[in-house]
Write a protein that binds this DNA or RNA. Sequence first.
DNA 1: ACAATAACTAACCGTTCGTTTAGTTAAAAA
DNA 2: TTTTTAACTAAACGAACGGTTAGTTATTGT
Lengths: 187, 187
Amino acid sequence: MARTKQYNEEEVLEKAMNLFWKNGYETTSMHMLEKEMGINKFSIYSSFGNKHGLFLESLKHYKSRVNTILQKFKKGTKGVEDIKQFFYDSVSSNFKDDNLKGCFVTNTYNEFSETEDELIKEQMHSFMDNLKSIIIAKLKMDTTKTEDTVIKQANYLLLAKHGLAAAARVNTTQEIEDYIEMTFKNI
Amino acid sequence: MARTKQYNEEEVLEKAMNLFWKNGYETTSMHMLEKEMGINKFSIYSSFGNKHGLFLESLKHYKSRVNTILQKFKKGTKGVEDIKQFFYDSVSSNFKDDNLKGCFVTNTYNEFSETEDELIKEQMHSFMDNLKSIIIAKLKMDTTKTEDTVIKQANYLLLAKHGLAAAARVNTTQEIEDYIEMTFKNI
DNA sequence: ACAATAACTAACCGTTCGTTTAGTTAAAAA
DNA sequence: TTTTTAACTAAACGAACGGTTAGTTATTGT
């Protein structure tokens, strides 16, 4: 063997993820990534292939990070109350260090909505489908709801979650809280 | 005087607006604008200064176009019912010619949320503030609501409208309709 | 100690970006 | 008809983009 890597791939990936999360794909340049990750282009390309590959890995890394919240959500037994708690958990990470970046998946969903990038779309759909099925499961815990009501409410909540993630970039904690409370008033 | 312009400034601005609306600011290149507007770079620069100026004019043009809907909204006398109708009016234009572009102002709001562009932010805030004051006026038509309730509901609806505009790019007519109906169940 | 090899640096690749400008064309004023 | 001047064309500008590569450095197994 030969020389060992002087950087930790997961560490620099975390930094890349934060930059992509904040600025989106197109706005983040390789130059910015070099500076933020603390390694140069050669190292980035040898570790992640290209900018697109690095972005995909950042997305996957993000998904594995939010998996903690998602697992807690899945395990809940309180139905609608779990969904509401999940909403709160999702935005709370945003207000930790003053970085209002929204949800990385939702941001990406919006930025790539007009493109034909299959790899990105696959990541988006798997995340959304998973989320939807969990929401449906929670709603069905209330056995008085009809199948039709469950579907309608699930669609509503998914859209509300989408909007919440987008709004989390620009709104205050209070506005977000009011929004969540109001959203669950009639569910 | 000398030679007359062979293009109509408002006509080419309309085309530029549609391109910016669909793709956002950064993704839209001057080359694309040349092709779409049907005039070349020189003409664009002499009429609109630069890309940023053209974008600002496109935004203003958009705002004057949606002013029709906004005036109708303002004139309404049915309170909450007017707000709901405004939500429907806002998304209906999207489904006319299969172009799911959302709301141009909201798209811009999201794209520029991390920048320091004062001119853009000014356009955003004037639009949002105006919208909020109209919503508050409509809510206050129900005199049984307390001031606190009005503010909370106004914030809720503003966020819902924001989310709706973002979702209009990716969701189906049915999902959008369900979302609006469900949104107003909580008011 | 030394050869092998992977990690590194830095300069450079071809494109495309937004913007400018030299040169040409055409319409209005004289 | 001639002069003036703005509208036009097209080529070029420097900077930045994502990506590559020749050359150097350092660590490993022998």
